[in-house]
């Protein structure tokens, strides 16, 4: 008998739903955080006495398939201008979908650190049926500068509004000894923040803000568990294919690409209302 995946043995249990916290000032940035999402997964392998489970791996993959990420700044006076930073569109972010990994993206799985709970590997000579269990953890966050310098007016502009949305799909998968992936189950989840910021102090080094959370743009979502292979074309192309950057690296490059002169950075000499759909 050859080792095989026991049909319908895959289980994912969400053990903690994510949350989002109201944005807070931390040093020179506005910080957007939330509670982690956590989940457990399990898959059972069938086999006979003498079979080897070596080379079989159960683990989590994760893709991010939507990123909304913009922020709007205003000077103290209308003549101090305004800035709109569109951080989630090309060229700063070339594509929406990316594979989300802690360790280098070539490892495919979310985390390949030895001893991680995100992966479980079979061994030679186990007792069958072999139940392999894994755990998943993610706690996304982001931040943005409180103050940006407007090159058009030469004046500091202060954070006035921001919207962040991160949408993910987490997949429980099995890799066979030949390297093939067999996706077993998945769930979608997201975190969203939107807020306006009204400076109460225009001290450039230590500005203070009244922060107003916009309810319609703030919250989380977690889907039910979906059995079988994901078919959503918005991200299936990045799940196990060759990728050059993880989502963390994509975001790192995005942050480095919104400085002065970037086409993702829109500056105006007055308090302009930018159209977030086009900018």
């Amino acid at each position: 008998m050859v080792v095989s995946i026991r049909p319908n043995s895959a289980r994912i249990t969400i053990t903690q739903r994510p949350t989002v916290n109201p944005p807070v000032v931390n040093g020179t940035v506005m910080s957007f955080t939330g509670r982690a999402v956590t989940a457990n997964g399990e898959v059972t392998l069938n086999g006979a006495a003498g079979d080897s489970a070596a080379g079989w791996t159960v683990g989590f993959l994760q893709a991010q398939w939507i990123e909304t990420n913009w922020c709007y700044y205003r000077g103290r006076l209308n003549s101090h201008g305004s800035i709109f930073l569109q951080r989630a569109r090309p060229p700063a972010r070339p594509a929406q979908a990316c594979r989300d990994t802690v360790t280098p993206v070539g490892g495919i799985f979310y985390d390949t650190t030895p001893g991680t709970a995100e992966m479980s590997q079979g061994a030679a000579g186990p007792a069958f049926p072999l139940r392999l269990t894994v755990s998943h953890f993610d706690q996304p966050s982001d931040s943005m500068n409180l103050v940006e310098q407007n090159a058009t007016t030469g004046q500091p502009n202060f954070l006035a509004e921001a919207q962040l949305e991160f949408f993910f799909c987490t997949v429980l998968t099995v890799q066979d000894p030949a390297g093939g992936f067999h996706h077993q189950a998945s769930f979608y989840w997201n975190q969203r923040w939107q807020a306006t910021f009204h400076p109460t102090s225009f001290a450039v080094a230590t500005p203070a803000f009244n922060i107003r959370v916009l309810q319609a743009g703030t919250g989380v979502g977690v889907s039910h568990i979906i059995r079988g292979t994901p078919t959503d074309k918005r991200f299936t192309g990045v799940l196990t294919s060759a990728q050059t950057q993880s989502c963390n690296q994509v975001v790192g490059a995005m942050m480095a690409a919104i400085g002065p002169g970037s086409v993702n950075r829109h500056e105006a000499a007055v308090w302009r209302n930018f159209d977030v759909r086009r900018a």
Partner: peptide, 21 residues
């Protein structure tokens, strides 16, 4: 104990906690 944003605000998508360890 986190892999990303472990001390200060940061842009993190994948982020694990290493405890207990």
């Amino acid at each position: 104990g986190l892999s990303c944003g472990s001390q200060c605000p940061a842009s993190c998508r994948a982020n694990v906690h290493y405890g207990p360890a």
